[in-house]
């Protein structure tokens, strides 16, 4: 369960988040929409303790992030818009390293290969140096790291950016599987179609505020695109 309770975040005079409250329950995929600079990444960063809220609080599984960020981070996995890895290491070495840090366990080569395959990276690419990878390939290693962590909540900041359509749709299937296992997923995206397909809830942000919070029932009888544009125009 991911909760933001009346959270605001100021960067100097710039209010990036303004009293945002939202909840992502286990088994939900919450898609966060909004224009560039609306505050989506800022919200995700608060859950990761990358930044501190100016007011309000964020909670993961009922525990306040600010109280013990190292332990709340154990419950989440994160995939950024651009997964950053060590260029001199191979994909599988990167995964091995980050997975070991995340879980405290050493994974066997078979386990690591299975994770990479599940994330959509062909086995043949696993041993190539990451400096030779395309953006999408790096993204897939990032997905594998998140899979290895087997976390109760996922924080995804435009995770499919750079993925080809086939990989993006495979990723949607992974998300669906995670949802079925009871994982709480918070994801930002600019892809309305994708949001409508995979999301169980959709939030629209504008200038730091959450201006719409829709359930899947709401969605079944509205056109998301029209709604989104209305909010943007308002």
């Amino acid at each position: 369960m991911l909760e933001a309770l009346n959270v605001s975040k100021d960067f100097g005079a710039n209010r990036a988040l303004d009293k945002v409250t939202l909840r992502v329950k286990p088994g939900e995929i919450y898609c966060l929409l909004g224009a560039n600079g609306a505050g989506k990444t800022t919200l995700i960063n608060l859950f990761l303790d990358f930044i501190e809220p100016t007011s309000g609080e964020v909670r993961i599984n009922g525990r306040k992030v600010a109280d013990d960020p190292l332990s709340t981070k154990r419950d989440i996995a994160y995939i950024p818009e651009q997964v950053m890895l060590y260029g001199v290491l191979s994909g599988i070495e990167n995964l091995k390293y980050f997975a070991a840090l995340a879980t405290g366990e050493r994974h066997s080569r078979e386990q690591l290969l299975a994770l990479l395959t599940e994330a959509g990276l062909p086995e043949a690419a696993a041993d190539g140096r990451v400096s030779t990878y395309s953006k999408g390939m790096r993204q897939k290693v990032g997905i594998a790291i998140a899979l290895a962590k087997n976390a109760k909540a996922l924080l995804l900041d435009e995770p499919t950016s750079g993925l080809d359509p086939k990989a993006a749709s495979e990723f949607s299937q992974l998300l669906a599987k995670a949802r079925d296992r009871g994982v709480a997923v918070l994801t930002t995206t600019h892809d309305l179609f994708h949001a409508k397909q995979t999301g169980t809830r959709i939030g629209i942000m504008k200038q730091g505020r959450l201006v719409a919070d829709l359930s899947s029932q709401d969605l079944s009888h509205t056109d998301l695109e029209t709604l989104y544009l209305q909010h943007m125009a308002a």
Binding site: D49, S71, K73, Y78, Q82, M84, G87
Partner: peptide, 14 residues
């Protein structure tokens, strides 16, 4: 600069 610091911090590495 590389961005791996974010990755590390997100995993709960102190």
């Amino acid at each position: 600069e590389l961005g791996t610091l974010r990755q590390l911090m997100s995993l709960g590495v102190s």
